[in-house]
């Protein structure tokens, strides 16, 4: 059969290398390059990116040098030390513990949980939505009933109950508990786009080309909704920082001896802390505001990069 093609085309094996090189010169830039150009064109977004990435790297590494149990020891001598006193750059709290060090370890814990939660729940939600939307029919019907059931459960209450029942939980088990309840939104969003995408002829063309369902779902359809996925992941990451923080603030998140942004903000529960000892809670609160704003700004840029008509960056 190969002869058949040789006969009717004037291209032969000898031309392969040359033609390939010509084509390479004409190739279009990759998605990563387009996103990078978009950041370069938008200075505030670049600043947001540097803040977020820099901060995450800083706390991840910084926390390694801090001995958490020792840091959490009560030290009456330093009771509510003011900021900028010797050894307490951001002051100390009611236990005489360094706010700066707690902030580093706490951020590591909170951000770590948020990242873990985003990875697990988004992966699951994306797969659920893609499979449900692609197959439609009975599979879709069954998967959507599971979704409905999960949505029916009162989420915060369930988490609190689970956290109370499980005796020794830590950040890892907490991440998994959160994940059970945070994949639904993503899955619905992805499913509705998948339903529309599956109707397009390129999916039919892949079927007639002999490609199997799983490859079509994850290699053909998923890249086409990647912009939606990227934006959704970024925004849920911002949201997920709030999830752990909120629960720890209420006292149902991480245990007391494990600092987190939530436990630090909980210092504001005490009226005298709010006005007199502001340094115990304000840094953590500011950090959350700055992080969440920066992340959603990054999300907007990613969305723009994904949508060719809104791009600001140069084409190459």
């Amino acid at each position: 059969m190969a002869e058949n093609f040789e006969q009717h085309s004037d291209i032969s094996a000898a031309d392969l290398a040359r033609l390939n090189q010509e084509a390479q010169a004409e190739a279009t830039p990759s998605t990563a390059k387009i996103i990078w150009n978009e950041f370069k064109a938008d200075k505030p977004a670049m600043a947001a990116l540097i803040i977020v990435v820099g901060f995450i790297v800083f706390v991840m590494i910084g926390a390694l040098f801090i001995n958490t149990p020792k840091m959490m020891e009560t030290n009456i001598m330093d009771y509510f030390d003011k900021p900028f006193t010797a050894g307490f750059w951001l002051g100390a709290d009611s236990g005489g513990r360094s706010v700066a060090k707690q902030l580093i370890v706490g951020s590591r814990n909170s951000i770590g949980i948020a990242i873990g939660l985003t990875v697990i729940s988004s992966t699951f939600g994306i797969a659920w939505g893609l499979i449900s939307g692609y197959f439609s029919g009975y599979i879709d019907w069954g998967m959507q009933r599971v979704y409905d059931f999960m949505m029916m459960l009162p989420m915060t209450m369930m988490i609190i109950v689970l956290v109370t029942i499980i005796p020794h939980y830590n950040s890892v088990s907490l991440t998994f508990i959160f994940s059970i309840f945070y994949w639904e939104g993503t899955s619905r969003l992805i499913r509705s786009r998948t339903l529309a995408e599956t109707q397009k002829d390129y999916v039919a063309a892949s079927k007639t080309s002999g490609t199997n369902h799983w490859k079509i779902i994850f290699k053909e359809i998923m890249p086409n909704i990647s912009s939606l996925i990227i934006v959704d992941c970024t925004l849920s990451f911002a949201e997920n920082i709030g999830v752990e923080t909120g629960l720890s603030y209420l006292g149902f998140g991480l245990p007391n001896q494990t600092p987190s942004l939530g436990t630090m903000i909980a210092n504001a529960n005490d009226p005298s802390n709010i006005t007199l000892y502001w340094w115990t809670w304000l840094p953590a609160a500011l950090e959350i505001v700055v992080l969440c704003l920066s992340i959603s700004y990054i999300g907007q840029v990613l969305r723009r990069a994904a949508d060719a008509s809104q791009r600001q960056g140069a084409a190459d």
């Binding site: 093609f5 040789e6 085309s9 291209i11 392969l16 390939n20 084509a23 190739a27 279009t28």
Partner: peptide
């Protein structure tokens, strides 16, 4: 790759189409 280039040639397209979208 050779077969793809031949097919492009048969339908009257240049080889530089290869890596375009």
């Amino acid at each position: 790759k050779l077969r793809v280039l031949q097919l492009l040639n048969i339908v009257g397209l240049d080889a530089d189409a290869l890596y375009k979208y």
